[in-house]
Simulated assay, not measured.
Amino acid sequence: MDEAESAARRLAWGVHNAVGFVFTLFWTAGWISLALLVLLATRRRDVALRMAARCWAPGLTGGAGARLVVEGADAVDWSRPYLLVSNHQSVIDICALFQAVPVPLHFLLKQEMAKVPFVGWYARACGMLFIERDNPRAGPRLRREAAALLGAGHTLCLFPEGTRSRTGVVAPFKGGGFQSAIDAGVDVLPVAIDGAGDVLPPEGFRVRAGVITVRFGAPLATGDASGAAGRQALADAAHASVLALLRRSA
C-alpha cells in the first residue's frame, strides 16, 4: 500500500467515525427524549427501560456494524431479580447488556454520568444508581439503595472491575458492591462480554464492525456470605466464573 492510498484509508475511517459519533449523539438524544415523554405520560419506568433495550441499543450496535450473540440467557430464571456483574471492555457494553437481558435492567453508574445531558436525565428518571468514588461516606448509602432496588424485584448491573479494561485483561473484582446482593438475599449472576473492546475500544471513538458475545453464567447464591471475607469470596467466585465464560471462546 503506497502512502497516498494509506492516507486515503485513514481519511475514510476518520470520516466514518465522525459520522458515527454524530449519529450516536442524535440517536441517543432522540430516543431518550421520547422515553422521557413516555415515562412522563405512563409513570412506568419499566417501559422506558425496555425502550432502551428494544430501540436505542439495537440502533447503536447495528450502527457500529456489530452483531450481537447471546449465550446462556435461556437457562436463567428471569422471574427473579439478580445482581448482574460483568467485565467491562467498552461503553458499548451497556448497549449489549440492555439487549441481552430480557427484563428491565438498571445500572450502577459513575457519578459523572449524572451530569451528562440526556443520559444523566434518563438514568435518574429510570432509577439508576450512581457511585461517588471520591466520597467514602456515600458507600453505605449506595449499598442500602442498591439492596432496596434488588429487594423490590429489580435486576441491577454493575461492573466490579471499577473501570473499563484497556488491555482486555479482567481486573480483580472489588467486593463492596456485592454487599447489596447479600443484604437483599438475591443471587449474583456473572456475565462475560467478549468482543466489545474490538468494536469500540475504550479510548476514543474508533468503531469497527465485529461480533459482541454476551454469555450468562450460573447464578451464585449469597446466603452463606458473611462479613468482608465472605463478600470478597463472592466477588472472587464471580470473577472466576466470568473468566471461565470468556475462555469458552478461546
Rank of each mutant, 00 (worst) to 15 (best):
D2C: 03
E3A: 14
S6P: 00
R10I: 11
L11I: 12
A12N: 07
A12C: 05
A18T: 15
G20W: 12
V22S: 10
V22E: 04
V22H: 03
F23W: 14
L25M: 14
A29M: 13
A29E: 02
G30T: 15
G30E: 11
I32W: 13
I32K: 05
L34D: 00
L34H: 02
L37E: 00
V38K: 06
L39H: 14
L40S: 15
L40F: 13
T42Q: 07
T42C: 08
R43S: 10
R45I: 03
M51S: 08
A52V: 10
A53M: 05
G59N: 00
G63F: 02
G65T: 02
A66Q: 06
L68R: 00
V69L: 13
A73V: 08
D74M: 03
A75R: 15
S79V: 05
R80S: 09
P81W: 01
Y82I: 04
Y82R: 05
L84N: 06
V85I: 06
V85S: 09
V85Y: 01
N87G: 10
V91W: 03
I92D: 00
I92K: 00
A96V: 01
F98W: 15
A100L: 08
P104N: 07
L105M: 11
L105H: 12
H106N: 14
H106P: 05
L108Y: 04
L109R: 07
L109S: 14
K110D: 01
E112Y: 08
M113Y: 13
A123C: 11
A123R: 10
C126L: 08
G127M: 07
L129I: 10
I131K: 07
I131P: 03
R133K: 13
N135T: 05
P136F: 00
P136K: 06
G139K: 04
P140I: 07
P140N: 06
L142F: 09
L142E: 08
L142Y: 09
R143W: 03
R144S: 13
R144C: 02
A146H: 04
A148G: 10
L149R: 10
A152D: 14
G153E: 11
H154M: 05
L156S: 10
L158E: 06
G162Q: 10
S165P: 04
G168R: 09
G168F: 11
V170M: 11
F173H: 06
F173K: 08
K174Q: 15
G176F: 15
G177N: 07
A181D: 06
I182D: 05
D183Y: 09
D183H: 09
D183C: 06
A184M: 12
A184G: 13
G185A: 12
V186P: 14
L189V: 08
P190T: 06
G195I: 13
G197W: 01
P202T: 02
P202C: 03
F205D: 03
V207M: 05
A209T: 01
I212Q: 10
T213D: 03
T213E: 12
T213A: 12
R215W: 06
F216E: 13
A218P: 01
A218T: 15
A218V: 15
P219E: 11
A221E: 13
G223V: 13
D224N: 13
A229I: 10
G230V: 02
G230T: 05
R231C: 02
A233V: 02
L234C: 01
A235C: 12
D236L: 09
A237I: 07
A240D: 15
A240S: 15
V242G: 05
A244V: 08
L245W: 03
L245N: 12
A250Q: 14
